[in-house]
Design a protein around this nucleic acid. Sequence first.
DNA 1: CTGTATCCCATACGATACTG
DNA 2: CAGTATCGTATGGGATACAG
Lengths: 144, 144
Amino acid sequence: MATMTAEQRRAEAKAEFDAYMETCPTSRLMAVLGNKWTTTLLNRLADHGTMRHAELARSVPGISAKMLTQSLRALERDGLVTRHVTAAVPVQVDYTLTVLGETLIPIVATVRAWADRHMPDVEAARGRYDGARAGEAVPSPRDR
Amino acid sequence: MATMTAEQRRAEAKAEFDAYMETCPTSRLMAVLGNKWTTTLLNRLADHGTMRHAELARSVPGISAKMLTQSLRALERDGLVTRHVTAAVPVQVDYTLTVLGETLIPIVATVRAWADRHMPDVEAARGRYDGARAGEAVPSPRDR
DNA sequence: CTGTATCCCATACGATACTG
DNA sequence: CAGTATCGTATGGGATACAG
């Protein structure tokens, strides 16, 4: 059908892209860690060990119930956390890092260390870039 | 006005979120690295040193001209790469990592090392999870 | 060669409301 | 308590065409 053309085009493009991305584990990992709450959740679990749903919710300000569940599901699917249900009057669900998940913690810690040290520089660069583009003087104190 | 309510709600929510995210450099960094082409471009520049626009385009299969420019602009804004224009008959634009950008390379390398070693495990976990949910028996490590 | 402008789709994220 | 369902918006990302 003629209506297939556009969709087909997109399918091809996606296939082409995936063919490349398939060979790039780094990108695939970043797609996981790049999600808004992933690193935060991993860090909380690393710090507190096993945690309940509500406990995590309290521990991570701003996260919605939906995103909490969704993010944890994704991590479970990726084999990074386990989900344990305890049948009780109020159901109790515990989340824990898997051994695989634990191996990821030092990596996140490394990233965190760089972020703590250098993100201010990045923010400053953004300010300079945006300020300069906004027509404001402030050309460039120190770049490169 | 009544029409402000929804928009105002969202503004508050965003403010609340930003207030938290502002305190979390790691999340902000991940938002950068999580973009589809960021790590790939950083790696290419780290490997080849200064590169031209077209050179990068050839070096990164599947990237569109738009995303190449857009990604590089973002990196420039963040102070991670410099953009140097050489006025000539066909304009020539070179991109290079800044010193700040170079400090990020070891971090990316660390991430890459984990990804190379453990992403297959993640993929396997996904296969198991999806296979089990699909109603197919095959709860075992070998499906297909 | 390098970059911009449009258009459009897919998805991430959030608010709200509702089940076991 | 934990989770699902539905809805809505914002943004990332790609195709195409055009311009300096």
